[in-house]
Amino acid sequence: MNHSDSLLGDLESTLKTHARELVENLEQGNFGEAVQLIHELNKARDRGLYHEVGKLTRELHTAIVNFQIDPRTPVAEEVSQITDATERLNYVVTMTENAANRTMDLVEQSAPLVNELGDEASRLKAEWSRFMRREIDADGFRDLARRIDQFLGRSERHAQTLSTNLNDIMLAQDYQDLTGQVIKRVTQLVTQVEQDLLKLMLMASSVDRFAGIQHNLDELLEAKKKEKGPTQAEGPQIAADKRDDVVSSQDDVDDLLSSLGF
């Protein structure tokens, strides 16, 4: 920006000096000189403009190369970084979804085993109490002994299955390491893209300044405001404690609803 500032300064001082000389020449009737000065003024303006356009073109080219979206660059055969990032994030979605489903499969397999053991244990406990109170005859006891024997065998088998399932549930969390690495790389790319976009924005603003284009900021802000209504879904809040318009817990939701008469 410093360079274009000084260029703008040069142009301004040239304009000022020439304008003064132009008025003087016109007042003294030197029309030939005056026309010559107007020509000089035009040349100065064009020179500035050409220079600026040339500089912007170079910067734009660099920015495009940085984005790797120029089909003429040698890396065109490879995917662009953005496409690559999209694929990486899709990979994260797939990995997390698979892990969630694998975990739920194992939980759904395990829950009936635990329930079965619990139910049978309470039934046997009741029978055992009857035995302790001497309310069971010899046949009854033989039956109870047989059921306890079966129960112990089942307990051993189920415990083994449950132990394996718990281990598998733990292993299903290995996506965290892989997706963490992928997300970190994508975060780096986003930061890079943001910086490049900022550069482009600064370039655009210097074009505006040079060409004297004015934007109606109020109108732009108003349009932006309209885009974002209250019904617009925002997804999970990651910094709820830093915002006043967002609840940070279920308790807050309940308080808000009860204040509305719920």
Binding site: P230, A233, G235, P236, Q237, V246, V247, L257, L260, F262
Partner: peptide
């Protein structure tokens, strides 16, 4: 996951 006060009021 929507947690804006305006949204909760809107839903209510």
């Amino acid at each position: 996951a929507e947690a804006k006060r305006d949204q909760i009021i809107e839903a209510a």
